[in-house]
Computed example of a mutant assay.
Amino acid sequence: MRDLKGIVEVELLVEEGGALTPTREYVQRDTTYVEGRSGQRYALRVRNLTGGRVEVVPSVDGLDVQSGKDASFDLRGLVIRPRDSFDFTGFRISDSEVATFRFGSIEQSYAAKIGKPRNVGVIGVAVFEELAPPPPPPPPPFSPPPFGGPPPGALGAPPAPQAFGPPAPAPAARPPTLSPSAPPPAPGFVPAPAAPKGLGTTFGERRESRITSTQFERATPKPAAVLVIRYEQREGLRALGIDVDGLSQRETASPFPAETGFAKPPPGWKG
């Protein structure tokens, strides 16, 4: 899915046969849903579609992916370079490791275990564009030196007058944002046992995912785009009226598609 401005593209990747692949999205009443299975590993891929850097603040089950705190636009995220992408593979526990995202029961979810199960089942991505630097000042107009005199600024020329006053305040330090480094291949995993109905995201096994710090100044205090994905088991999607089994074609099949004449024998029929 993409935001309306075409700033980023977001995909949910689920593990099938040991590899992460994009899962199918179901759109109903302007809401995007995906299917998950208990014990299944997943990742959130965010691709920057623009020619500038963007800062991405992802949340899972109402929790900030980087800090584990209640998700907020005020928290800092990860900077993605122009036309680049990054896979968020878990809750961050250090600059080099995450706790893997895995679907599990609501009771097993990280949010429930820290006493915050209210927003289980939803993934969000807030996107901030970067403030453009001011244009450089125009060069001073050229003025030729007087005949026989030294050029302006040459050795021996009188110093330019200086204004005195209190020193200008130093610019406020901005909190660092994070920038991804290339992650190594993910290790193997052992599937978790089946869980009760209803899905959350568990605080899974350690997985390597390296990032570094960088500086990023947001163009606006509010995000330029917010994308939302809701996830549920197949039974839950069915209960919402979502056609996860491809039944819509069968439900719309007509018993009288042509209403023309008698039955035509099939090829080779001899009666």
Rank of each mutant, 00 (worst) to 15 (best):
P158F: 05
P158N: 08
P158Q: 08
P158H: 02
A160C: 01
P161G: 02
Q162D: 05
Q162I: 08
A163Y: 02
A163F: 08
F164W: 12
F164C: 02
G165V: 04
G165Y: 03
P166T: 07
P167T: 04
P167G: 05
P167D: 05
P167W: 06
A168Y: 09
A168R: 13
A168C: 00
P171K: 10
P171D: 11
A172W: 02
A173I: 12
A173D: 13
A173S: 12
R174F: 07
P175L: 15
P175M: 12
P175Y: 07
P176A: 04
T177E: 07
T177Y: 07
T177M: 11
T177A: 15
L178S: 15
L178R: 15
L178C: 08
L178V: 11
L178H: 14
S179K: 13
P180V: 00
S181H: 09
S181N: 13
P184C: 01
P184H: 00
P185F: 01
A186Q: 12
A186I: 08
A186H: 07
P187H: 04
P187R: 06
P187N: 05
P187I: 05
G188P: 00
G188I: 01
F189H: 12
V190F: 03
V190R: 12
A192K: 09
P193D: 05
P193F: 07
A194N: 08
A195T: 12
A195G: 12
P196E: 08
P196F: 04
P196C: 05
K197Y: 07
K197G: 14
K197Q: 13
G198S: 07
G198Y: 06
L199R: 02
G200N: 02
T201M: 06
F203E: 09
G204M: 12
G204P: 11
E205F: 11
E205N: 13
R207K: 12
R207T: 14
R207M: 14
S209T: 08
R210P: 15
R210L: 12
I211H: 08
I211Q: 08
S213Q: 15
T214Q: 04
T214W: 01
Q215A: 14
Q215E: 13
R218K: 09
R218E: 03
R218H: 05
A219R: 10
A219T: 04
T220C: 09
K222L: 14
K222E: 15
P223V: 05
P223C: 03
P223N: 03
A224P: 06
A224L: 04
V226F: 09
V226H: 09
L227R: 09
V228E: 15
I229Q: 06
I229N: 03
I229E: 06
I229S: 02
R230V: 06
Y231E: 01
Y231I: 02
E232F: 06
E232S: 11
E232L: 09
Q233F: 11
R234D: 04
R234Y: 01
E235R: 10
G236N: 05
L240W: 00
I242V: 14
I242C: 10
D243V: 11
V244F: 05
V244G: 01
G246S: 02
G246H: 03
G246E: 01
L247F: 10
S248A: 15
Q249P: 00
